[in-house]
Write a protein that binds this DNA or RNA. Structure first.
Lengths: 201, 201
DNA sequence: TGCCACTATTGAACGAGCGTCAATAGGATG
DNA sequence: CATCCTATTGACGCTCGTTCAATAGTGGCA
């Protein structure tokens, strides 16, 4: 009985193997949760043995952390804010980049969001940091002059707004229904000024 | 060596045991995730054997579902909307009931929210149904006459708004900081009209 | 070209924890 | 007080995460 697929052991450079496993992890953890993902399945999918995962990441949970960091870094890197322009245009550009990223990589984004709610404090912190990286500039770079002063209430408002944006985009991606992309974009971008206005200081 | 605590086997009526286990489950699953909660810990905490949990719920995941349903039903029951009054006042009353519920039972609410993101489709559906039960009346009971027509865009807006409210309240409960409760309430209640207005149609 | 050291990779063995089932004991009823 | 009903138990099997010594690619050096 000769094996159909050659059991050839392929040897990669550590860097390549690591990113291969991380990318695979991002894809697999987008739909399944961590305890629904067995090491055996992951190993077989990657074409490696179980032991190798432990060599690179030291454990299942540590692997999950690495995957989430990978997704978070990718998100932050690919949604860098534009340099100049009008405040409202910059906001719209940021939001557009964010929406397009979620549309293009919603596997990665899903695995990031899942991790935030489903798990230990380390994962939640990674998620919080990523969100802060995206929203923090609203205050630090002060895109609207002094239209949105840095008060406790406005901190809450921006935090709530970002949760809303996430929900809207994920819902829209899952089912674009009758709402065109541009409509979503102006909806999302226009809501922040409206909310700040409604909060009043 | 005599056991310190008597190993007396206490026999309860099925209904009592069931609710005892569900309440305990709600409390324990508020902070830990499901795979961080071992049957042994749960059993010892409840003063029962592992086997009994399987007798009542049939399995760990089934138990989780029951716990989440328990929390969701409790939420829906305790935030029933008021009967009459002005639309805006009814909205404020609903929001107040919701906020007060989360403040009073945020263990239960946390376990509900955690379940939504962290798991299988059944859990997410329970969560979605609960959210729909809370927000659906906005359309069906038409609290603002025709100020908020039932369009695809407004469905999205209300969905996003509810995500925002959840985030705001949880963040505020975790750290009330310098924002008084009434300020939060008017913030949350006032944001929906503002969002609908900003969405325009 | 051929050996050698280095290290990426493996697979078997161990333990923890979930799930099953026949046996046990509380308590109400006559 | 005896007996039946059923809530409750505890030991067993099995899957799956984790460990570690052994194995086999690969690049460098003679």
């Amino acid at each position: 009985m000769v094996p159909v697929t050659a059991p050839t052991r392929t040897r990669l450079a550590p860097e390549q193997r690591r990113t291969q496993l991380l990318d695979l992890g991002v894809r697999l953890l987008a739909t399944r949760s961590l305890d629904e993902l067995s090491i055996d399945v992951l190993a077989e999918e990657a074409g490696i043995s179980r032991g190798l995962l432990y060599h690179y990441f030291g454990g299942k949970h540590a692997f999950h952390e690495a995957v989430v960091r990978h997704a978070a870094d990718d998100l932050i890197a690919q949604t860098a804010p534009p340099e100049g322009g009008e405040p409202l245009e910059r906001l719209l550009a940021s939001v557009t980049a964010y929406v397009d990223y979620v549309v293009a990589n919603h596997a990665g984004y899903q695995s990031l969001v899942k991790a935030a709610a489903s798990g230990n404090d380390v994962l939640r912190e990674i998620y919080e940091d990523a969100r802060s990286a995206l929203t923090g500039r609203i205050f630090t770079e002060d895109p609207w002059g002094d239209l949105i002063p840095d008060t406790p209430v406005n901190r809450l408002v921006v935090r709530g707004w970002s949760a809303m944006v996430e929900e809207l985009v994920l819902a829209w991606v899952a089912d674009p229904a009758d709402v065109p992309r541009d409509r979503l974009l102006e909806l999302v971008a226009g809501s922040l000024p409206a909310l700040v206005e409604s909060a009043g200081s």
